[in-house]
Design a binder for these strands. Structure first.
Lengths: 218, 218
DNA sequence: CTTTATTTTTAGCCTTGACTAAAAATAAAA
DNA sequence: TTTTATTTTTAGTCAAGGCTAAAAATAAAG
């Protein structure tokens, strides 16, 4: 069982590692966690003893298999709770992070497996990020911005990039939500605007909109 | 904002106070919280400074209005989460306490108010205990054991006393759950057995069963 | 290849919340 | 009303996690 602080470190290191290959620097962790490098050194040494990461002085850290699994599990919980908050409690996508940040530390395997079932075994959270399975595996996914698709390509909406209230309301009006199928009927190279099909509706969208919607294409 | 430890103390003192009128002794708190009296003294002095309780050396403590409200709010959260776990995630009544113990410390007014709505504004948790409102008020309730009712009295099932698996399965079979209306059609003084009406069914129950079901009669 | 700048670590201290052992109040018994 | 027992408090420690300031590595520049 890991403490709240330990879980947060593992999570942060997991994210940093996936963004920039290779060992993660002490400063980078301190930065991500809004804490001081000296505190990071302490914690990282402690976590190295618990064998969730390997740490070489002055060289940085990287998660072990065990550490990756633990981190992925915390992330799994975070994302499942986000789905719950949006789908069941009708929060908006951009309101749920802080709450999920707390809920992710509730310890109970059974709780999470039942929550998963209750939510219909979702694959993505409301931001379009994939939800790891209970073994910590993340399905490799083909997530693109809608603006990167070309004519006749299609996919499923899995999230938004930046979520301001106006944009979310626009999506609402157009009946676009997580899981909605979207097809590109036409694309204007001139301004990046598109004509897309959503359900039985066809309509025009600007480049700005297209750059804010994540689509999964496989 | 109160720490996890502080919230747990407030909750424990609240419960102790409601059971035994007057100031609560240091030992009683230590006992309830499975900690040492010296630790309790420390914490209680800290909480007295925060004005959530009044404390007189060697005399004991009692919650202030502010403290009562805070404690009731934690209890409110605990009980709402228990309802969620049972009603939505299909946990059994006796499995939910430890999980709710963690969930109750998640800080978000909005979360709780939405959860409350999602659950249909329940008045009781799965154990039949009343859920305080957001101001910390507990509706004064007329909760009795079914065995205390007499012929022609009726009420609503609000919980169970002891919940073992066999008993819960029995209730399941008879379609008795939280909110079920129950009427006493007959009562045998000889052995305490009863004939009751549940929905359109009428059947016989033993004293043992009747002593394990809480009924609200107002 | 030194010198300087940056990054990382160490050492020492702080707060929270708990503990033990000893002292001080209070309560009970003789 | 003393004496004894019980309860409560105080004093001093400890572990977790964080911080600051200073020292030590590493990297960058001259």
């Amino acid at each position: 069982m890991y403490s709240l602080a330990e879980e947060n470190y593992l999570k942060a290191i997991y994210h940093l590692e996936s963004k920039s290959q290779g060992a993660v620097s002490t400063n980078a962790i301190a930065d991500a966690m809004d804490t001081k490098p000296s505190s990071v050194t302490d914690m990282v040494q402690k976590l190295a003893e618990k064998e969730v990461l390997s740490y070489i002085k002055y060289k940085g850290t990287s998660l072990t298999k065990k550490g990756k699994k633990t981190a992925a599990n915390v992330i799994r919980k975070h994302r499942l709770w986000e789905v719950f908050l949006v789908e069941k409690l009708n929060f908006h996508w951009d309101e749920v992070h802080d709450i999920a940040e707390q809920l992710e530390h509730v310890h109970s395997e059974e709780l999470i497996s039942r929550l998963d079932k209750f939510l219909g075994f979702p694959d993505f959270d409301p931001h379009g990020d994939p939800i790891p399975d209970k073994h910590g595996n993340v399905k490799p996914t083909e997530k693109k911005l809608l603006s990167e698709l070309n004519k006749n390509q299609k996919g499923v909406c899995v999230g938004v990039k930046e979520s301001n209230s106006d944009f979310l309301q626009y999506l609402d009006k157009k009946n676009i939500t997580i899981g909605t199928k979207v097809s590109v009927l036409g694309k204007e190279f001139f301004d990046g605007s598109m004509v897309i099909q959503v359900g039985r509706d066809q309509f025009f969208i600007s480049k700005k909109i297209a750059e804010n919607l994540y689509i999964q294409t496989n």
